[in-house]
Design a protein around this nucleic acid. Structure first.
Lengths: 183, 183
DNA sequence: CGTTAAAGTGGACACGTGTCCGCATGATGG
DNA sequence: CCATCATGCGGACACGTGTCCACTTTAACG
């Protein structure tokens, strides 16, 4: 009486949807869900059951990038002072968002969806690690949490392509300064 | 061969659309453009010609609030030190966004649409006034402009209703600290 | 194997957005 | 007052999103 798990074909469809999504994202500049469904050779109902929201799909497509970002946090902490580590991590975020352009917004949406569900999610955990280290040595203000930072980082979503280089890191620097403990 | 101005009826329709928008916003919690058109007794084509985007319409509906916000800047500067004035102005923003809830996002969208058009727009001008005063007396970092701040403030858009009181001002405070000149 | 019921499917459908264009309307010059 | 035609109207339409449900497939069990 095990939960009567899964259906091999369902997993196949799921995989094919992700693959199709990658293809569409790579080739078209528009990301239309129904186009992805068609490309994958499934009905839209199938797509929407596997990925209830557009964000769910994109988050899955870019899961690896997210994992990389998450893994970077402890690594940076091992090498740098907490505030420096946080600064470097912000740099990574800027790099990621620069290349992945439109997708950043969607992934971010997925992240704070996690937050709404009272679970921080992987990115939130990574951030918490960085923030706690900074609080512990007194360089980060004690009244901030991962959620605050994710919200603040969200402003990158609005930065236009052609001003990215000029604005993104600059904005993150301002945020970082805001997070520092006031002397 | 004067520009062959106007059409009295067009102005009337425009006014009726705004009125209808107010009604819909007040009564329904959903803001559907076609519902507004219907309420106003005009076709959707008419609505879309007068207000090409949803933001244009909402910005018009809340023009008064925006003007109030704009007017507050110089008034606050007359009474307080620049940083304090900026802090108070942020408070106003928080108040406004708290009451106008969903609309804040749209108005903000309209604002940075202005920015994209290389004109700061009224809000941008108000912010510039505040920032310049702060730079002049050395309390605000010199490398920020109104656009940066508008982008940063944009994070309020994502704050949920039920955590507004706890988060909004807190986030604005962090931003403000980020804007301060580092001692 | 055959049965059975849950798991899964896919496309039709409802909805909101935004565009487009043939038609009417009202200001203007005669 | 009438003729003219730019200005403006409005609704039909195309499109993308997301939902729903009658039907099919899979795999556990006898």
């Amino acid at each position: 009486m095990e939960p009567r798990h899964r259906r091999a074909d369902a997993a196949g469809n799921r995989a094919r949807i992700i693959q199709a999504a990658r293809a569409v994202i790579a080739n078209a500049d528009e990301i239309k869900l129904n186009a992805i469904a068609k490309e994958a050779g499934v009905g839209q109902g199938t797509l929407y059951r596997h990925f209830p929201t557009r964000e769910d799909l994109l988050a899955e497509v870019y899961r690896e990038d997210v994992e990389e970002l998450v893994a970077a946090a402890p690594a940076l902490l091992a090498e740098h002072q907490p505030v420096t580590a946080l600064a470097r991590w912000f740099d990574r975020v800027a790099d990621y968002a620069q290349v992945k352009r439109g997708v950043f917004a969607a992934v971010e949406a997925a992240v704070w969806q996690d937050l709404a569900a009272h679970s921080l999610g992987p990115i939130g955990d990574a951030l918490t690690t960085l923030l706690e280290a900074g609080k512990a040595d007194g360089t980060i203000r004690s009244d901030v949490d991962a959620r605050d930072v994710i919200l603040l980082i969200g402003c990158l979503t609005r930065v236009e392509e052609d001003e990215w280089d000029a604005k993104a890191r600059h904005l993150l620097r301002i945020v970082l300064d805001g997070l520092r403990r006031r002397p």
